[in-house]
Simulated assay, not measured.
Amino acid sequence: MKRLGHLNRDIARVLAGMGHTDSVVIADCGLPIPDGVECIDVSLTLGVPGFFDVLDSVLADFKVERAVFASESLTHNAAVVARMAQLRDAQVAVDEVPHETFKRLCQQAKAVIRTGECSPYANVILHSGVIF
C-alpha cells in the first residue's frame, strides 16, 4: 500500500501521466463535465470533500505552472480569491476567464476531479509545470 501521495488510484494515475502544459480540473459538484473528458468523482455529500481539501492534496503532489479560474469568482467567492493570491505568491501564473470560457477550456483537460464543493465558482484548471 502507498505511504505517500494520492491514495486515489485514478488521481495518482492521471497526475503521473501529465506532461508539460497538460491540464487537470478540480471542480465543484455543479460544473458540467465535458463529453470525452474523464471524470474522477470523489464527491460524497454536499461539501465533502471540499474544493480546498482536494486542491491542497493535488498541489502537494503536482508541479503547477499556471492556474485558471472563472472571473466570476472575484465577486462571488472570497475564499477562492484568497487562494488565487496564495498561488501567485508561490510563483504560479494565475488567470481569470469568464465562466463560459472556463467551461470550454475544460474540454482540453486530461481529467476533471469532481468534489462535493457547493460554493459558487470553486473550480480551477491546473496546468502542469516541469520539475527540472
Rank of each mutant, 00 (worst) to 15 (best):
K2C: 11
R3S: 10
R3I: 11
L7W: 13
N8Y: 02
R9A: 14
R9E: 15
A12W: 12
R13C: 07
A16I: 10
G17T: 02
G17W: 01
D22E: 09
V25F: 01
A27D: 03
D28T: 12
D28Y: 09
G30K: 02
L31V: 08
L31A: 02
P32M: 01
P32E: 01
I33C: 12
I33D: 04
P34G: 11
E38T: 12
E38A: 04
C39D: 09
C39I: 07
D41I: 03
L44W: 06
L46A: 15
V48S: 09
V54W: 08
L55R: 08
L55T: 08
D56C: 11
V58K: 01
D61S: 13
K63P: 02
V64K: 02
V64A: 00
V68H: 02
V68Q: 12
A70T: 05
S71P: 04
E72T: 05
L74E: 05
L74R: 09
V80D: 07
R83D: 08
Q86N: 14
R88W: 07
D89N: 12
Q91Y: 08
D95C: 14
P98S: 10
H99I: 00
H99D: 06
T101E: 14
T101I: 13
F102D: 03
K103Y: 15
L105F: 07
Q107Y: 11
V112S: 01
R114L: 12
G116R: 12
E117S: 12
S119D: 15
A122Q: 08
N123H: 08
N123C: 13
N123L: 07
V124E: 05
L126N: 08
L126T: 04
L126S: 05
H127L: 01
S128Q: 02
G129F: 06
G129L: 11
G129Q: 01
I131K: 09
I131A: 13
I131F: 11
